[in-house]
Design a protein around this nucleic acid. Structure first.
Lengths: 232, 232
DNA sequence: TGTTTGAATTTTGAATTCATTTTGATACAC
DNA sequence: GTGTATCAAAATGAATTCAAAATTCAAACA
């Protein structure tokens, strides 16, 4: 991460490295939801022994990324509709807080950066470039979080956002909903520019509520695909 | 937990047991903030080997209860003023959400229970019974969380609340602030009874903001005590 | 042919062992 | 007397080993 001459040497413990590696494997889809996580195979892949790997699995389980079945190993947690229904209100509350704080703490430079991101995203929208749109979209939400200036808030939000990241990326947004989302983003930018924290909080909450439906839609599609794949 | 004849037998893994035991030791003050966590000693106390203990320490570190110093073991995380400043806004957002949801999902029985708790707490207030007051106080907030009907919300809130539990219990509330807190609780009950989610959310947020100051006060007192103890 | 039982294999849980790093103490130099 | 260097002891990080439970597979039986 940080390697400026004066910063203390980063000695990332093996354990931490493994946690991050395995988490990345889950988020990137190398380990599919519901799939068993074979200790032996992972040990060989990563070139480590079971002890640090198992420590990492326990941590990831406590994060909700994996679930541990007693005496039967770990499997990748798969998101149910109920999980998403629980996660989104919480994420909404956290984003709303971030919006409020951002309106207080944002510098003019921060707002300028968000404005630039917004219009870049709008461009991708008009060009119907979904992947690019979603990438910028995520950056905007991350930037608002960062500007809020509350590291704990960021950590907690990222923990939840990570778990649905795959679904958000692939999000099969309808063109109607896409228009709506862009309109919401116009409002988000506007609220930020006028530093209207309450309004921004409200918009973000609503924005997330809508996104929730989109993610659940993807989830249903995934489940259907998995079912048909299993039938073959 | 659940031992009805038909439920599967609950086999809590050793690892989970240890996580809970050590976390309890921290919350109950058996392990003091800033203190090193000696692996060897704990292994002997709990009658286990280092492997499962170390797994537990990693999990507790990821929860923020402990911090791991590379090659130098674990220590109990001590709350700084900044930590509290970060935690309370997040807790406020989560409680506000809980309030909103509670107004939607509470049954009349739930509200009756909260009303009973409220007036019991009011009694302890008039009698100036601090410990009893705080115990009921916590029960009320837990009940609102429970009524919200979002297990994830509860988990995340408990994670934060646990870390400041000690400080909240000992909270050296001034009599002026105590009056104010009771008035806020009157409003909380009232908002619930009228199922005014927005208002309840706002009150809870404000309530938490005030509590934040009280906790930081305790923290300063603790730090001062620790300093004078070290000087002896 | 289908089901069930039981042994062999694999996998997981936990203890032990080994290697590395840190810590603490003593001796030595200045 | 102070500060540094060196070495011993302790603690930590990670691999290995051992024991347990679960899974697999084949044989026996209905």
């Amino acid at each position: 991460m940080d390697d400026t001459p004066l910063s203390p040497i980063q000695r990332q413990s093996l354990h931490d490295t493994i946690v991050n590696r395995v988490r990345a494997m889950v988020y990137d889809g190398d380990l599919k939801p519901g799939a068993k996580v074979p200790e032996k195979m992972l040990c060989e892949t990563l070139g480590i022994s079971r002890t640090p790997l198992r420590e990492a699995l326990k941590v990831l389980a406590s994060e909700g990324v994996l679930e541990l079945l007693p005496n039967r190993g770990a499997r990748v947690a798969c998101l149910t509709g109920e999980d998403v229904d629980e996660m989104f209100p919480v994420m909404g509350a956290l984003e709303a807080l971030a919006g409020e704080l951002a309106c207080v703490h944002a510098t003019e430079a921060d707002i300028a950066e968000l404005r630039a991101l917004h219009y870049q995203m709008a461009l991708h929208h008009t060009r119907a470039e979904r992947n690019e749109y979603f990438a910028i979209n995520q950056k905007i939400h991350e930037k608002i979080m960062a500007v809020a200036g509350n590291p704990l808030l960021v950590t907690m939000y990222e923990g939840l956002a990570g778990r649905i990241r795959r679904a958000r990326y692939i999000s099969s947004i309808t063109s109607g909903r896409w228009e709506e989302a862009m309109a919401e983003h116009e409002e988000i930018l506007n609220a930020l520019e006028t530093r209207d924290g309450q309004r921004l909080a409200g918009i973000l909450k609503e924005h997330l509520r809508n996104k929730c439906e989109a993610v659940k839609e993807v989830l249903r599609k995934d489940a259907a695909e998995a079912a048909s794949a299993a039938a073959e």
